[in-house]
Design a protein around this nucleic acid. Structure first.
Lengths: 224, 224, 224, 224
DNA sequence: TATGAATGAGCGTTCATTCAT
DNA sequence: CATGAATGAACGCTCATTCAT
């Protein structure tokens, strides 16, 4: 019990608010910089300059570049989780609900390429930062749970196959959404076409939706 | 494996052979280092040390770090292309051929995570290196072409739907294969399960194969 | 041991007492840190952390790192002086008194290596802090005075030589005591033996005592 | 066996010589800077500026600040050893020989305060650098050996006591020499006199010589 | 009396690269 | 063909200290 126990007594003061703003300002800048340049390429100077702050403040607020990156990851996971929670599709109409989920996933990744890039960066580092976060399991199951409920409802209504794991369907949707954004640059070069035109995006969404629904629907005989 | 690999075949002298070996030695090391640490994290020194050579030789052979990275990308594309060419599935049995393609894709990415990591790195850099390569279109269409032939054959035999673009099917397969390897670390933390056990890999392959076949086969009524 | 030491005796209020405790808490931590890391290596942060206080308090109480170091030096000098004053050997039995002084000196340095280290640090800085202290002459002469009295008594009793300066005898004793502690690490490496075993310490004390007594006693013909 | 085996073939070339000079230039500057400012206070920038070189070269030649400091320690030990070897007093006249040793020791420390300061710095760091040096035992025994020979000769001639350890005599001399230089600043403040005047130095040398000779000579009855 | 926030300068070290032969 | 020497800029981080209540 040291001398610093008088925090948060008389309501959040002006200074505390300013400090909070400073912290979040840096966090926001760091998210952009890490997403654009990766972890090694994203120097603390780039971050502090974008935040119109000073290198020193990063250490004041976060202690280290690594901790800052962890905070960035926690932030993007949390925001994705919150966005996902807002969708809340009605599982009682499972086909529509599944379409909603697919569209959300495709849209979210496409509109938040930073999220994708940061996840790639974290995978380059073998997940060492998420494993240090302490909150890794916190946002995990929502997306899979939602799909599980939709699948269960569809099975109940005789619309969907009963032999599917929600996790696999989740991975299929996530794969299609992720890859399209993650690899847009090399794919463009590889395929020789633009992938981010409205038409291309719309075509991909239709195709993925169709594919997922064909995968889950009940009446088909075994595919093989 | 030092530079004394004797690849000095058809007419090249001893010195040219040694030079060639030195060059490839560095290229091999660079592939590993860039795959492990990314472009910024993969320092010239790390590469030259792994190659048991000297920093200076990288400039001697490749001129710059960027050129070396371009050479690395060309190398992994070329190897993937060669591997793909070797598969050569028999399009006259389209279902089996498609299964072969899917299995190859899943296997290749899983066994060559360096390929995946390097592609992520290149996408982080918005594809600037591939666009400088001069060979970008060279290996591109093979994979899509193969699928196109299989689809055409399947349509001809009344097995597959006629309204599909080979490119979309290719992207679906590639997505499923790529994502599973690319995001294995964050997925493990996110889902709380191991993805690289033989059972998990086998399960994923079966699911993806099933999903693709359900997507392409002819007899299904519209999914929606 | 936090700041709640109740030294608030004769008339000082509770707040003054708390302040005094906070000050001394920092001073104690600073003594340890400077002794261990030197002046430059002993950062303000290390000190405030060890004191479970904050950097800012150091400036609050001492104004600057330099002033804090001066306070540390004053503290160790004062404590040594107090310890020396407690010994108070009986000059009327000069041989025993001298032995007592020698043993005290050897013991004190050996048991207070921080004192030795801090003096080395101050000498590295050419004594600039002691010269700023304002109390430098305060504790100085006691040790020499005590020896002077012992020598005088010995001379009077015909036991000691009359041609010695107390200062030289003091320096001889201090040298032997100081060096043994100050250089224990390099000496161990240099000589290849441990110097801090009880036997080694005892041997050194016996030797030094013998040497000093041979130096001061009266009956010997000139040494040269 | 890599490509770097062609060193030192055609005699030390011009470039190698220049490189050697650069290395030694830095080493010389580092010795001064570390002696003056200690290890932590002796920044690489101070060193490279004094050497009219660049920070980077320190890492090119020595790899780290710590390795540079180790090299500095090795250098001063080696020079002291060489100087000691040059003295080579004639043990057949043991009194004169001992005087020579004492004078050398006092002179060497007084004229090389850097040596003393660097040893203090190393002891502040608990001897971690000498223990990493790999040569620590190399220069050790000479000084003690020389004294051992002198003592043996003196005993043989009936001049010296037979019950002394050379190590103790060595330590006594070293203490007196070291302390006088090491603590000159605090001693001056403490005693209120200058210690580096010719008279003071001469007085101290005479006193120490006298004391050591009284300690070692044979005809005295036990001191206690 | 007491303290969280903020700071510019400097730290040891590594970066990709060029020089000179 | 091959390479040891050299380099300026940037890196992540820590320094002693002051600001603003």
């Amino acid at each position: 019990m040291t001398q610093s126990d008088k925090k948060a007594v008389r309501g959040t003061g002006v200074r505390e608010a300013a400090a909070q703003a400073g912290r979040e300002n840096i966090l926001r800048a760091a998210t952009k910089v890490f997403a654009r340049y990766g972890y090694d390429g994203g120097s603390v100077e780039k971050i502090s300059k974008l935040a119109k702050s000073h290198d020193r403040m990063i250490y004041y607020y976060f202690g280290s570049k690594e901790n800052l990156f962890i905070a960035v990851l926690e932030g993007i996971y949390q925001r994705m989780d919150e966005a996902e929670a807002k969708v809340a599709p009605d599982a009682s109409t499972p086909v529509a609900a599944l379409k909603t989920v697919i569209r959300f996933k495709l849209d979210y990744y496409r509109r938040n390429p930073d999220f994708v890039t940061l996840l790639n960066t974290e995978n380059l580092h073998k997940g060492r930062h998420v494993s240090k976060s302490g909150r890794q399991g916190e946002y995990s199951s929502h997306a899979v749970d939602i799909i599980a409920k939709i699948l269960a409802s569809g099975v109940e209504q005789g619309l969907f196959r009963p032999d599917l794991k929600a996790r696999d369907v989740f991975l299929l949707i996530a794969s299609a959404a992720y890859f399209y954004t993650s690899n847009r640059y090399t794919l463009s070069a590889f395929l020789g076409e633009e992938l981010d035109t409205p038409e291309a995006v719309q075509n991909w969404e239709a195709f993925v939706t169709d594919s997922v629904l064909r995968t889950v629907r009940a009446d088909a005989r075994p595919a093989i």
